[in-house]
């Protein structure tokens, strides 16, 4: 598979320094876990599983993504696509993040056509994570 240098770069940096590349997790019991939304997409049998977590905060009355973490099982471009998604997320409002489209990732990483599904997976991951956060938020509000 001939990948662009951008995919290779992203992949290698992620492996070399996972922390700097936002690899990680928030788990129940962690401080602020109630501010975290989690999206898991893909399946082991298909060779791709992406787990994305976003941490959101109210800033000036707007919900913003203040931090994000991921873990990905999959081919090099799936790992690079997750990292790329993280770069695009941080600092965005939830509304802005909802607008993220897989084609942006395809363009930035110059993904070959056979790997476009990796970017689709990334888009699904952020949609699911936002969804998770918002439904938890509903419950929180309801309980308050």
């Amino acid at each position: 598979m001939a990948y662009s240098n951008k995919v290779v770069d992203k992949f290698e940096k992620t492996l070399k320094d996972p922390k700097a590349a936002s690899v990680g997790r928030w788990k129940p019991g962690d401080a602020d876990f109630d501010k975290v939304g989690t999206g898991i997409v893909g399946a082991p049998a298909c060779g791709d599983v992406m787990k994305l977590q976003i941490k959101c905060d109210d800033i000036d009355g707007v919900k913003k993504i203040v931090d994000a973490k991921f873990k990905t099982y999959g081919c090099g471009s799936a790992i690079a696509s997750s990292g790329q998604l993280i770069d695009m997320l941080k600092g965005k409002t939830l509304e802005e993040a909802k607008e993220i489209c897989n084609q942006e990732i395809v363009d930035i990483l110059e993904l070959p056509p056979i790997k476009i599904h990796c970017s689709v997976l990334a888009e699904e991951a952020i949609k699911k994570a936002i969804n998770d956060f918002e439904s938890n938020d509903e419950i929180r509000k309801h309980n308050q």
Binding site: A43, C46, V49, Y73
Partner: peptide
């Protein structure tokens, strides 16, 4: 494995075959 969510689940003792994965 450090960046694999499946490895994380394995270490947590999750049975991966019992999870309903979206395809």
């Amino acid at each position: 494995r450090e960046i694999s969510p499946l490895w994380e689940m394995y270490l947590d003792g999750v049975d991966l075959s019992k999870i309903e994965w979206a395809s």
